[in-house]
Amino acid sequence: MWVFIATEVLLFGGLILAYFVYRHAFPQGFAEGSRHTEIVIGTANTAVLLTSSFLVAWAVEIFSPATTRIVTWLLVGAACLGLVFIALKGIEYSREYDEHLVPGIDFQFAGPLANGVQLFFIFYFIATAIHALHMLIGICLLVTLATICRRAPTTRHHTALHSAALYWHFVDVVWIFLFALIYLPGRSS
């Protein structure tokens, strides 16, 4: 599973290289773009994901035949928090669409920083969309495991749960960095 995670690190690594290169080229534009993101939703979503990860870690820790009910509920809870994340993300996307910030579909931004801002939003949309895709896969995994664990928990399921949990935490880690790169720059000026 860790080998797989190494693969994923490099997948996002390519994006992050692109981010740094362009942030270096357009520091002002990236700060401006960042100021147009929804920091409230972003922060809320980070908290949601951290909590969801916590629930999954909890479930892994206490997994045993005696605790199937509670493990199931923890996993369902984590999956629901994942859905909350996706829903908030949807709201965020639609607001950005209303503000004409979606490159390629409807992008209008006046002023000398337009290029940098557009590049920032391209990165924003690609990175968050790929992340959201990973979230959806993760939610499916959690729900599947919740159903299986309810029926007959065995050591094999424990291994499966372990792998799914690792994946979920990894998606969380990716978000931690995306949050720092997307929402935080340019807030202080």
Binding site: Y22, A25, P103, N115, Q118, L119
Partner: peptide, 11 residues
């Protein structure tokens, strides 16, 4: 969109 398009700042 111009991710790598030099006209709008890409590389």
């Amino acid at each position: 969109v111009g991710i790598f398009d030099p006209r709008i700042g890409g590389d």
